[in-house]
């Protein structure tokens, strides 16, 4: 075992660490949540990541996006993801995709991955990702944030989890996000993702809701 992974053990077995080095994960969205997803996956040593994001950084991202430094305003987020991982762990391959996931490209983009992690910032985009995961039979770890609240869940192909969670005409009013909310959300998602990737037992269709303002944590079974 390489020294860089020593402190992963025994929380993960040596075999699980090696397994992660051979896994491929699509990180869809490289902003608030996505930046932390990429950081956490790279520290764990997940061998391949596809970092998908069409956007460049702007100043309003500075309050929460880990991959952003002031000098990177205007720089593509997916490219920043690749470069940060190379500085952390050059054994990991990151493929930056500077494009939005849409109904035409989504399945092709994620088809060669073992898992998709959600760093998206809109419900329509999440529906596209979930549909592609169903089509390609890839599990999906959902995550979303607003203000002080983070929520995460595992969705298995075809479980229609997002339809249960979001009624068709739902409207999001609070567009604020604080620095710690995406970090917390990504931590939940990556913990769930590691369990999926290493074959540990996991519940799907259950929403983990965390209100960091009131320290309230709820486990919500969503009828699908």
């Amino acid at each position: 075992m390489e020294n860089r992974y020593l402190r992963n053990i025994p929380a993960l077995s040596e075999q699980e660490c090696l397994l992660l080095q051979n896994k491929r994960v699509a990180v869809v969205g490289c902003g608030g949540i996505g930046g932390y997803l990429i950081e956490l996956l790279s520290r764990l040593g997940v061998g391949y990541m596809k970092a998908i994001d069409p956007d460049v950084f702007d100043e309003s991202n500075l309050n929460r996006q880990l991959l952003l430094e002031q000098s990177l305003i205007g720089y593509p987020k997916a490219k920043a993801a690749q470069e940060r991982v190379q500085r952390i762990n050059s054994h990991i391959k990151v493929e930056p995709i500077i494009a939005a996931l849409d109904a035409n490209n989504a399945s092709t983009l994620i088809a060669d991955c073992d898992l998709a992690l959600d760093g998206l910032d809109s419900i329509p985009a999440r529906r596209i990702l979930a549909a592609a995961c169903t089509e390609t039979h890839i599990p999906y770890v959902y995550g979303a944030i607003s203000g002080w609240v983070a929520q995460a869940a595992v969705s298995m192909p075809g479980d229609n989890f997002l339809d249960a969670l979001y009624p068709p005409d739902v409207t999001i009013r609070d567009k604020s996000v604080l620095s710690f909310t995406p970090a917390f959300c990504a931590s939940m998602q990556v913990a769930l993702g590691v369990k999926l990737l290493t074959g540990r037992p996991i519940k799907s269709g259950v929403l983990y809701y965390c209100d960091l303002l009131n320290q309230e944590f709820e486990t919500i079974p969503l009828t699908v």
Binding site: D121, S146, P182
Partner: peptide, 28 residues
């Protein structure tokens, strides 16, 4: 949620029920 189970707006409620309401969370 009605008594811990995810329901819809047309779901009937009765004395003793506990109803929990959560706003949509969708940012990233």
């Amino acid at each position: 949620l009605v008594n811990g189970f995810h329901k819809k707006t047309e779901t009937p409620v009765q004395d003793g029920d506990i109803v929990a309401l959560f706003p949509p969370v969708g940012g990233g």
